[in-house]
Structure formats: C-alpha cells, structure tokens
C-alpha cells in the first residue's frame, strides 16, 4: 500500500497549469528527490500533495490516516507575531519540554528554544521547521528545498540527517532540491520535473537519461550547467495546447545553483531564462 499516489495530476494557479500528467507513487520508507529547473513545478507538486492547492485534474490518493510532516519552502512569519522556537514547535499541538529538547537535539537545533523564530539564520530555521514536522511522527516527510541557503557540506549533512531519520522512524521522504551533487548519492529515486515528469528512477538511471542530461548537462565533475533544453524529448504530448516549458533558448548555458562553492554567486545579468520565485 503506497503512502500517497497521484494519477494524471494537473496543478496550477491560474488558467494555464504549471504541471500536467503527473503519475507519482511514494512507498513507505523511500527517499525521493524532485529536481528540475526554476519554474518547473517542483514546489507546486509538493503543495499539491500537501493539499494546499486543489488539483486542476486528476486525483491524489492518500493512505488512510496518513500523517504528513511538511516543511514549506519559506515561513512567512509576520513581524508583528512574537514566536519563540519552543512555541513554534508546539504547532499545532502542545509539546512537552522533554519532547522539544529531544527533537532539537536530533536535528542539531539544541539551545534555540528561547530564541525568536524571526532571529534565526536560514540554516537554523530549516532545522527548526524540520523538527516541527518530526514531532507529529510523520509517515511521509515533504520538504520543499530544505537545503536552500546551506553550503554544500551543510546540505550533505542535512541529507545524512534525513537518512538517519528514515532508518530511525521509517518515514518516507519526498524533497525538492537544487543540490544535484548530493541528491544523486542520497536518494533512492529521483524525479526530474519540467512541467511534467521528464524521467524518473534510481539516481543512476536518471543521471544517464537523455531527458535529464538535456536539462542539467552531463554533470561531469565541477560545476553543473543548466541548459534550457531546446529539443522535445520523445514523449507523446497529445494535449493540444502549447505549453512552454522553456524551449525558447537553446544555446545559453545558465549556471545552476549547485556549483562549486568558490564560483561567483551571481547569475549573468543577461540570462533571461532564469526565472526565480516562480516556484
């Protein structure tokens, strides 16, 4: 019995769907990573699975009584709301001090309990949000870019943490990530997304798939280049309308976020293909 299953799912905010024809199954205990360029629908998919956005088409089946631990991409806490870390961890249910201490120690957020959530660094906030999600003893953890703002060692240790948690609790993990280097070694299964599921499978299968290489380049060592793929891969698109998932520019290599740490952080100012904040 899978934890969650999506069939022919379409999701979007306005008229044009961001994602279409998504078939997806998460089994207990597996670590699944979603990769894809900006605007490819990664966050939309996670939000759809959580139930924040209603499917435009298709169905999502959840195992009865499924406990989801969700870590959103951002926490838009308003400045006017005071909130200590300890109080935040009692959302939605009150937790004892012992429970809070235990979970903070587990995710490496000990000693933060009395700090204000608004004062945390990006990495601390990610750990605290993970701790909150863990307190409900979830069967499925949904993490939307939990390693953003972490450097590569930080991201790698975050993945080790997830692997430990999976061993300890048996929870399945579905996460969105940009860290292609670590993703490939730490996941059981990788889903490559770009408006639809381009390819999926074990990391070895996906990294060898032409669809993946078209999106992320061959990825041999060093910096990975993110190419806009200018070909239509061999998949039948029998839906009639014209959905553009970035086939416009073929030749401009755009650096992905996962790069060698010493490479300059800025994207070339003349790269209109990079769209941020869409997901």
């Amino acid at each position: 019995m899978p934890l969650i299953r999506a069939r022919d799912l379409a999701l979007g905010y306005g008229r044009a769907p961001v994602l279409e024809h998504v078939d997806l199954t998460i089994e207990p205990g597996e670590i699944v990573t979603i990769v894809g360029p900006n605007g490819s629908g990664k966050s939309t998919l996670v939000r759809g699975l959580v139930g924040v956005i209603e499917p435009a088409a298709g169905v999502i089946e959840r195992a009865p009584g499924l406990r989801i631990g969700y870590v959103p991409q951002k926490l838009a806490l308003v400045e006017t709301m005071p909130m200590t870390v300890a109080r935040f961890l009692s959302i939605p249910r009150r937790r004892s001090a012992a429970e809070i201490d235990r979970v903070c120690a587990k995710v490496g957020a000990s000693g933060l309990g009395s700090r204000q959530v608004l004062d945390l660094s990006g990495g601390q906030l990610q750990r605290v949000m993970l701790a909150r999600a863990l307190l409900s003893a979830p069967q499925l953890l949904l993490l939307d870019e939990p390693t953003q703002g972490l450097d590569q060692p930080g991201a790698a240790s975050f993945y080790r943490l997830l692997a430990e948690l999976r061993l300890e609790t048996g929870a399945a993990v579905l996460l969105v990530s940009h860290d292609l280097h670590v993703v490939m070694s730490a996941s059981d299964r990788v889903i490559c997304l770009n408006g639809h599921i381009c390819c999926q499978g074990t990391p070895e299968v996906v990294s060898a798939a032409p669809e993946y290489r078209a999106l992320f380049g061959p990825g041999t060592g060093g910096a990975l280049a993110l190419y806009r793929h200018d070909h239509d891969h061999d998949r039948d698109h029998d839906h009639g309308h014209d959905h553009d998932h970035g086939h416009t520019r073929g030749d401009a290599p755009v650096p992905a976020r996962a790069r060698a740490p010493d490479s300059p952080p800025d994207l070339p100012p003349d790269s209109p293909t990079v769209r941020d904040g869409v997901n």
């Binding site: 959103p72 709301m81 959302i91 909150r132």
Partner: peptide, 10 residues
Amino acid sequence: TVSKEIAVSV
C-alpha cells in the same frame, strides 16, 4: 495564522 500551508498539512 503562522502558515496556511502547515495548517493544511495537519
């Protein structure tokens, strides 16, 4: 109030 998304998830 803290997060509509977290609310839906629980």
